[in-house]
């Protein structure tokens, strides 16, 4: 019987400090046993438990795309015991990864459709995975228009800034980057909160258009009325939730919303699904 609690051993290959407050770092991890990479067969939108011997585990969205081979990537905000320890680790250090866990964005259903990605703050990780996945030459023809609305407090708080500017240059993805405020005279993108920019830039909803929304609760709260105004049906609004987790496989009992476990039945739910669930998240 395979033990679903046993992490795959990995080595930290590279650590990138993403944001000006130094609170977000990206960890590039390489499997110690090459076979394990084949077993870790994931889709954009899934998460994994990062495991540090002696500290514990944390559930983190996978920021790399399944089309990127040879490594996994996670961007981690420093908040608690495990994340603080992880932020002090060095390239070459050994840790573990358990997964992939949870469901993913409905790539099969979204085939042939327009995809609008709306992200805020450090919730952009699985959205990066999704963008890289859709822009892969093998996948790009499967999706129609791709819009990305991504906001952070300041330019220095945006994740993956080099990639953002690369995507800005492409004509097969519409980027709408925004910051809450900036005094940088050279800032050439939008200024304003994500809901406002969504109102201005997002195409109207229809049966051929899906919105993926990930961000802090305040952003979600104010973006939803905008999407309603733009006529997005609630089963076309896709969200990814966070919850305190331990097992990650629907057994330990803490991350439920009603009868659904965010770790196993989620983290991805449509707004339509969430409407029929208790408001306890």
């Amino acid at each position: 019987m395979q033990n679903p609690y046993l992490p795959y051993p990995v080595r930290i290959e590279e650590i990138i400090t993403e944001t000006e407050d130094k609170n977000l770092k990206t960890f590039k991890l390489v499997f110690l046993n090459p076979d394990d990479e084949n077993k870790f067969n994931y889709n954009a939108g899934q998460f994994a438990e990062l495991s540090i011997a002696g500290k514990g585990e944390i559930p983190i969205g996978i920021a790399s795309s399944p089309t990127e081979k040879g490594f996994l990537m996670f961007t981690v905000n420093k908040v608690g015991l495990v994340t603080s320890h992880l932020h002090n680790m060095k390239p070459g250090d050994i840790m573990g990864v358990r997964g992939p866990l949870g469901n993913w964005y409905p790539w099969d259903i979204m085939e042939g459709k327009n995809v609008i990605i709306i992200g805020g703050g450090f919730a952009f990780t699985t959205l990066r995975s999704s963008i890289i996945y859709m822009l892969d030459p093998a996948n790009r023809p499967k999706y129609k228009d791709i819009h990305v609305i991504y906001g952070a407090r300041t330019p220095g708080m945006l994740l993956y800034r080099d990639e953002l500017s690369e995507w800005e240059k492409r004509d097969d993805i519409h980027m709408h980057i925004t910051v809450d405020a900036t005094d940088d005279p050279n800032w050439k993108y939008n200024v304003g909160f994500v809901p406002t920019i969504t109102d201005q830039k997002a195409p109207s909803g229809n049966t051929d258009t899906y919105a993926i929304v990930c961000g802090p609760p305040i952003m979600i709260k104010f973006t939803q009325p905008v999407l309603d105004k733009l006529d997005y049906a609630h089963d076309h609004i896709i969200m990814s939730l966070e919850m305190r987790m331990k097992c990650g496989i629907g057994i330990c009992g803490r991350c439920n919303i009603g009868k659904e476990f965010v770790c196993k039945d989620g983290p991805v739910f449509t707004l339509d699904q969430l409407n029929s669930m208790p408001k306890e998240y």
Partner: peptide, 20 residues
């Protein structure tokens, strides 16, 4: 329901689960 915790003594340790 259970919790998962690591317990280290010196340089060795165990990962365990406890009723929660």
């Amino acid at each position: 329901c259970f919790d998962i915790q690591d317990e280290t003594h010196g340089l060795s340790g165990i990962r365990m689960r406890n009723w929660d």
